[in-house]
Design a protein around this nucleic acid. Structure first.
Lengths: 224, 224
DNA sequence: CGAAGCCAGATTGTGTGCAATCTAGGCCGA
DNA sequence: TCGGCCTAGATTGCACACAATCTGGCTTCG
C-alpha cells in the first residue's frame, strides 16, 4: 500500500486543514460540521469538503450519518480503552523497530524534543501545558517514522487520532505528567543505547500511564 | 468511534459494491478504475463513485493519485510482510478475546465453517479452491466479531483486505493448505475448550503459515 | 534517425442546481 | 395543558456542466 502523493488538490488541502482544525480542538467533540459552513471557512465549494469529510470519517475523526451530516467523533470510555489496547499492541513494537534504524542525528532530535517537553511541562512560571501537545505529537511521530513500517504505522494512526476528546495535558495530575515526560527521556536513552527491548518496555509503560489518566478523565466527564 | 449507520445512500451502496468487486477479484491488482466506467457499471453518477473511491483509498484497497485517477492497490513483498506482521500483532489477540464470549451456537457455526472448508479443500473430485475464499472470510470475520472490540477489529480490517493480490487458495501447496485447514479446526477446538491461550497460539501459527505461502508467491510474481 | 515540443482527446477536479430528507416550530384536537 | 400531526426552512444527496490537468501520438528540428 503506497502512500497517497503530496497534497496539491483542493480536497487534500481540505482534508489536512480540517484534520488540523479538529486535532487542535477548534471544534469540540460532538460538534456539528455543516458542509456549507466548512466550505466558506476553507474557501472552497461543498464538493471537496464532502470528500474531505468522507475521508476523515474513514479515519475515524468524524462520524457521518446519512442525510444528517457530519459531527466530530465522540468516544465512550469503552472505545477509549479499546484504542489504548490497540496502541499497546502496536506502538511498543514500532518503537523497538525504530531503535536500530535511528541515526545519531535522529537521536539528537528526539533528545531535544524530550528535554524541551520537560522544560515546558515542569511546574513553575515557564509551564505551558498547551505547548506540550505539538511537541508530543512530533516526538511520537518521529519515533514511528523511524520504524519505516507503513502497515503498522497506518494502523496506529487511527488510534492516536482517536483520543482527541482529551487532547490537552491539563487532565494530567502532576505525578502522571512528570512520569510521562520522564518516559520520553528514558526512551531516548534506550534508543541511544541501541536497546530495543528497553525502548519497547518504556513505551508500553508510557502508554499504560496515559491510558490510566485518559480513562479516569473520560469517566469523570461521562459521570460528572 | 461509532459505526456508521446501515447503507441506504447511494454512496454506501457504491462503497460496498465496489469493495466486493475488488475483493472478489473482478479487477486485477493495478487495474485502472475510471470514474465514468464505474458510474455506469453501478448505475449512479460520478459523485457517489468518487466518494466511494476516497473511502476505499482510506481503507487501502485502492490508490488515489491526484489528476490521474484510481487503481487497485498493488502490494510489494515488503508491504505484504508488513501486513502480516500487523495481522500477527492483532488477530491472535482478537481470537483470545473471542474465546470467553463465544456461546455454544457460535462455536457450532465456526465448527460448521471449519469442517466445510476441510471438505471443499481436500484433494479429490469435490475440491473447489475458489469456494474456500468466502468461507475463509466468514470464519475469520465471525471470530473477529465475537471479540467485540471495534478498535482492534478496525485496525485489522485494513490488513486482511490487503493481500488481495493473492486472494485465492491456488497458490497454496498441498501441505500448507492441509495445515491451514487443520488450524481452523483446531481453533474451534480451543474455543470450545474455553482456552484463549490455545486459540491465540494456533491463530499465530495460522497467520505465519499463510505469510510463508503468500510471501513466497509474491516473490515469484515479482521475479518470474 | 532520434529527441524534444506540442496538440488533441480523454479524464479528473470543482462548482452549482435541483430533488429528497430531516428538524423545528406551530397548530389542532383531546 | 399536553400530545400528536403537519408544514416550512434548512441541509444533505445526487447529477451534471465546465475548467484544469494528464496521456499519447504526431510533428518538427537538429
Amino acid at each position: 500500500m503506497t502512500q497517497t502523493s503530496p497534497s496539491v488538490t483542493g480536497r487534500e488541502k481540505a482534508v489536512d486543514a480540517l484534520r488540523e482544525l479538529i486535532l487542535r480542538g477548534d471544534f469540540p467533540a460532538g460538534a456539528r460540521l455543516g458542509e456549507m459552513e466548512l466550505a466558506t471557512r476553507l474557501g472552497v465549494s461543498r464538493t471537496p469538503v464532502r470528500e474531505a469529510l468522507t475521508r476523515l470519517a474513514a479515519e475515524g475523526l468524524v462520524e457521518l450519518v446519512p442525510n444528517r451530516g457530519a459531527r466530530v467523533s465522540k468516544w465512550s470510555v469503552e472505545e477509549l480503552e479499546g484504542v489504548f489496547e490497540l496502541r499497546t499492541a502496536l506502538e511498543p513494537k514500532l518503537t523497538a523497530l525504530a531503535v536500530p534504524k535511528a541515526r545519531p542525528e535522529d537521536v539528537e532530535e528526539l533528545d531535544r524534543l524530550a528535554l524541551r517537553m520537560v522544560e515546558v511541562g515542569s511546574p513553575g512560571p515557564e509551564q505551558d501545558l498547551d505547548a506540550l501537545v505539538p511537541l508530543n505529537r512530533e516526538f511520537h511521530g518521529r519515533l514511528v517514522a523511524l520504524a519505516h513500517h507503513p502497515a503498522l504505522a497506518g494502523a496506529l494512526a487511527s488510534a492516536v487520532h482517536a483520543p482527541i476528546v482529551l487532547r490537552n495535558f491539563h487532565t494530567y495530575d502532576e505525578t502522571s505528567l512528570r512520569r510521562s515526560l520522564a518516559h520520553h527521556v528514558e526512551i531516548v536513552a534506550a534508543v541511544r543505547a541501541g536497546d530495543p527491548e528497553w525502548a519497547r518496555a518504556v513505551m508500553t509503560a508510557h502508554i499504560r500511564n496515559a491510558r490510566a489518566v485518559m480513562v479516569r478523565a473520560a469517566r469523570e466527564q461521562e459521570n460528572p
